[in-house]
Design a protein around this nucleic acid. Structure first.
Lengths: 209, 209
DNA sequence: AACAAATATTTCCTATTGGAAACTTTTCTC
DNA sequence: GAGAAAAGTTTCCAATAGGAAATATTTGTT
């Protein structure tokens, strides 16, 4: 199964490449890293304690490098604070991507037309993004216009901005989505979209890895 | 800096918990993994001990899951045996989330009101998502209504669905966004949103980890 | 500035880890 | 298959982690 067109496919994939990233750097200061993560999530020690099941005091000591937590503790940390353990061993913060911002004005994304969709890539000024947002006009009017299922690695979120669409997926019955409706699905499951309103429908897509 | 309200904070974070995944499953048999690696390298405990600086007995206990090594010990292990720490936590393919789909009808997300926003969480039927989508009505009319910057781990994408907003960020001048405009930014950078149209503005947010 | 509330650190104590050496099991060698 | 050497496990104890509560610090309010 291919994407709508090879050109689009490779184009999207090029964007995707940016998402997977860096090498693993030494665990230098676990404590600092933990504190960073906790603060980034606006958590107090108390709250973090509640979530991880570790005592407030223990967390404090870990963050201040006063103790070397047992592996058990590290696991609790990871689960409670919602971080992949490997994340703890990656450079504290990717200086490249921290503090970034990009604004895309209405209609000013990078256009990319295909037979079935009229895509407009948003936030195209930023690279190495974790998500790829794009707005699309759904030109397809019939499922048969697709050479086959569309598939992506990762998950996708879609919101209908205008018109009405029929959403086909590999493992479910098609479902009609009206303006304002949205769906979230596994991108590796085959999927496709057609307009069923007078006008071509417009949707917003955000894909993740 | 706190989030808008503790309630919202914890609420969103509860959703976020779903994102963290495997990683937490894998380390169940750290010992097994270590033994595997040691044997694959044809090392005796004695030799491994020499290389890692950990006592023979300690290594034995770790491999037999009799103790939970301290983080220090794990580091020594990794360096001495020449392995990436993340390698110890290689996550297996996740079958749980493949082929999933959730549809949220207009206005049918899970509501969550706060002083500054009226949130509606989308795709709330799915757990362990990689992204968290929600639609929000921006009640705030003035930056002062925020107790401080809002911060999240990860990156965020925002699209203005209705009305007009002023987007404040820690490292940039505020920018006005009209309906249809969008922005993508590092969530750890402080940010906040206020309506500047007659009506309360409506925006779509998608956050990633 | 003074007070209260929230958040973070330190103390003190118990539980667990990590190491040296004793002990056990496995693997060679004859 | 007995004995010796190598490899692995367990024991015992000193060192260190982890938790509850006291103390200190920071933040917010009047």
């Amino acid at each position: 199964m291919t994407d709508e067109t090879p050109a689009f496919s490779s184009m999207i994939d090029k964007e995707r490449e940016q998402k997977s990233t860096e090498a693993n750097v030494a665990p230098l200061q676990l404590g600092k890293r933990v504190r960073e993560i906790r603060l980034a999530n606006n958590l107090t020690l108390e709250e973090a304690s509640r979530r991880t099941g570790l005592a407030r005091s223990t967390l404090s000591k870990i963050e201040n490098e006063q103790i070397s937590p047992t592996f058990q503790a590290v696991q609790k940390l990871a689960t409670g604070l919602n971080i992949d353990i490997p994340q703890l061993f990656v450079n504290p913060q990717d200086a490249r991507t921290s503090g970034r911002r990009d604004v895309t004005r209405f209609g000013e994304g990078r256009p990319h037309p295909t037979p079935t969709y009229e895509h407009e890539i948003l936030a195209n000024q930023l690279t190495n993004k974790k998500m790829l947002p794009y707005k699309s006009t759904v030109r397809a009017r019939d499922f048969d216009q697709y050479p086959g299922w569309v598939r992506h690695a990762g998950e996708e979120f879609m919101l209908v901005l205008k018109g009405k669409v029929r959403f086909y997926t590999e493992f479910y019955e098609p479902v009609d989505l009206d303006t304002g409706d949205s769906t979230y699905y596994d991108g590796t499951m085959g999927h496709a979209l057609v307009s069923i309103s007078e006008e071509d429908a417009e949707v917003l897509w955000v894909t993740s890895n």
